[in-house]
Simulated scan of single mutants.
Amino acid sequence: MRDGRRHGCALLVLLLPAVAGLAALLLSFGRPGPAPPSPAPSGRPGGPDASAPVRVTAPAVGISARVVPLGLAPDGTVAVPPVEPDAPVGWYEGSPVPGAPGASVLLGHSTVGRYGEGAFFRLGELGPGQRVSVRRADGGTVAFTVRRVAEYPKADFPAGEVYAGASGPPRLRLVTCGGPHDPAGGYLDNIVVYADLTRGR
């Protein structure tokens, strides 16, 4: 576990690329950034999408958290999961639902201010071959196998790789803050877990 992960990280702010690869993921207190494209609609007329994720688990590192949808904030960044005890993980609705073609993106806090450890506090401890499962609103579960875990300085965040769109095989991206702690607040790096579909039902 990285020692720096124990410092406060109250807000997770996602800046999606207006053009793939041009924006960075910033974990700060509402720092403005480029406006992303509008998220793809995830719901169906008359109700929410039954395939939307509701819980993510990674038993190897003790992750078990409910998942809520995230849209866009007024400043054009992705809204953050709420800062509260047992804060949930957020699924960015502009990415595919887990198990659908393309890369689904889940974002979680590493630490949640005065509430302590966040849902993704131990995310960086995941290793290749370990399992991440996502339960859907319809009761189905999709399982993913971790392929690699990477840590990036915020300025070098590979937005085009993480937000790979809705084509190709089903994949999962888990994103949180990490690395050294910035004395001004927040973390200097981002941790990204890349996982590929193992099975779904």
Rank of each mutant, 00 (worst) to 15 (best):
M1D: 15
D3Y: 07
G4L: 11
G4A: 07
G4W: 02
G4Q: 05
R5K: 15
R6D: 13
G8A: 13
C9G: 15
L11H: 09
L12I: 09
L15A: 04
L16P: 06
P17H: 04
P17E: 00
A23F: 00
A24S: 10
L25K: 03
L27R: 04
G33Y: 06
P34G: 05
A35H: 15
P36L: 10
P37A: 14
P37H: 10
P39H: 11
G46Y: 03
S51A: 14
A52L: 10
R55P: 11
V56R: 09
V56D: 01
A58I: 02
A60C: 04
G62D: 10
I63D: 00
I63L: 11
A65G: 10
L70T: 06
G71E: 13
A73G: 11
P74Y: 15
P74T: 14
P74L: 15
V78A: 15
A79P: 08
P81R: 14
P82N: 14
P85V: 09
P88K: 04
G90F: 07
G90A: 13
W91R: 12
Y92R: 04
G94P: 07
G94T: 15
A100L: 13
A100V: 00
V105Y: 06
L106N: 03
G108I: 13
R114L: 12
L123K: 09
E125A: 15
L126V: 09
L126P: 00
Q130D: 08
V132R: 03
S133P: 08
S133V: 03
R135F: 05
D138E: 08
D138P: 00
D138F: 02
G139N: 00
G139L: 06
G139W: 00
T141M: 03
V142F: 09
V142N: 04
F144P: 01
T145F: 03
V146S: 07
V146Q: 07
R148F: 03
V149H: 01
E151M: 04
P153Y: 11
P153L: 01
A155N: 02
G160M: 02
V162W: 03
A164P: 06
A166F: 01
S167L: 01
P169H: 11
R173E: 04
R173P: 04
T176Y: 00
T176E: 05
C177V: 11
H181E: 12
G185A: 03
G185N: 04
L188V: 07
N190Q: 05
I191E: 09
V192F: 00
T198E: 14
T198C: 03
